[in-house]
């Protein structure tokens, strides 16, 4: 492992090398403080009921806990970013497995977790070949292990749930971790996390303000056309503006490509949200868990990221690549 790689993995002193990283960190902390202040002012002015106040406080406290957990690893270094994504993958998988009942197939569950661990290793090793080899290999293992019970009834469902679990939480989410192999990963990863989360907020706010026509009454009755379009416009504007500084001088830095990136974040984000809603409707549950007070499960919060991570990864990779100047196969050599 050469010095540059070690610095990328563990060099927390480089946290604010890019001014964008610093801006985003400051903006997020400021936003949290302002939110807390607004809640306090609403309370002081007697404009919020007890119920609303409790709900708002719960949400802001949840964000205050989640923000350092999300931004901390990215600032600390690539190794921590990759580890944080791996933990998120496993926790999201756990929620999904408990909600669908897939966790009862213990041997298959072990295969999915092994797949997530193998993916994490491929990412940390910066070995793209293995990263794309893990999904088919996991599929092979799932198909084989599921036979061992000698119970054809439900075989397709067992294997399918295993494949979906691994692809969504191991592979798709893994793309977010893989971005940490880029020398300049901090602003990119932060931009994506920030805008994906804000995309939800924009959809919520504009939906409340302008939303009338429901777009998916069966899947998620609260989604409106106004919210969807509002989020699309605001997120695309934000992504392309901040993206201009993040990708300055690279192949992505043209107005058309930056707008394309923004559209991908917003569209894939909203569909990710609707995807998890569909899964919940299909199973017949309201929330995916109780991990985050005021939000529900982890999956209720990070649903949007699932589809954004691979879409954005391959879009950016097409124009500028990820970590192409970084040494590959750090541990395995070759």
């Amino acid at each position: 492992m050469n010095l540059a790689t070690r610095e990328r993995l563990f060099g927390f002193r480089h946290a604010f090398d890019s001014p964008v990283t610093l801006w985003i960190t400051i903006a997020v902390i400021a936003a949290l403080l302002i939110a807390a202040l607004i809640i306090w002012l609403l309370r002081a002015a007697g404009r919020s009921s007890d119920k609303l106040h409790d709900e708002l406080v719960k949400r802001v406290v949840s964000w205050a806990v989640m923000t350092p957990l999300l931004l901390g690893p990215v600032l600390l270094g690539a190794a921590w970013t990759i580890l944080a994504v791996a933990i998120l993958s496993i926790l999201c998988y756990r929620e999904f497995a408990r909600a669908t009942g897939f966790f009862r197939h213990r041997s298959l569950s072990i295969v999915v977790v092994l797949g997530i661990i193998a993916t994490t290793f491929a990412i940390a090793d910066h070995w793209y070949g293995f990263f794309v080899a893990v999904p088919p290999l996991t599929m092979v293992l799932l198909a084989m292990v599921a036979i061992l019970r000698d119970e054809p009834r439900g075989y397709t469902q067992r294997v399918s749930l295993g494949v979906i679990s691994f692809l969504l939480f191991g592979h798709c989410l893994g793309h977010l971790g893989y971005m940490a192999n880029d020398a300049d990963f901090r602003p990119i990863v932060m931009l994506i996390i920030l805008t994906v989360e804000l995309n939800d907020v924009f959809a919520y706010i504009t939906g409340k303000t302008f939303g009338h026509r429901k777009i998916t009454p069966q899947t998620s009755p609260n989604k409106t056309l106004g919210g969807a379009v509002g989020a699309l416009v605001l997120t695309t504007t934000l992504v392309s503006t901040v993206g201009h500084f993040v990708f300055a001088g690279s192949g992505v830095d043209t107005p058309a490509k930056l707008i394309g990136l923004g559209l991908i974040v917003s569209v894939a984000g909203q569909f990710g949200d609707l995807m998890v809603s569909s899964i919940k409707r299909d199973i017949g549950i309201k929330d995916m868990g109780v991990t985050i007070p005021g939000h529900g499960g982890l999956l209720d919060r990070f649903d949007s990221m699932l589809l954004v991570a691979p879409a954005v990864f391959h879009y950016i990779a097409f124009f500028r690549g990820f970590g192409i100047d970084q040494p590959a196969r750090i541990f395995t050599g070759g």
Binding site: R94, A97, R98, A99, T100, G101, F103, R104, R106, S109, I110, V113, R153, G154, Q157, D282, I283, G284, I285, D287, G289, V290
Partner: peptide
């Protein structure tokens, strides 16, 4: 056949409630 989902029987309980629940199901 139609897929059947059977969420964990202690689904939706907090960590403390799960520990005290007789319906607790064990994960990996």
């Amino acid at each position: 056949e139609e897929w059947r989902f059977e969420p964990a029987h202690d689904f939706g309980l907090s960590a403390k409630q799960r520990r005290l629940s007789l319906r607790r199901e064990v994960g990996l």
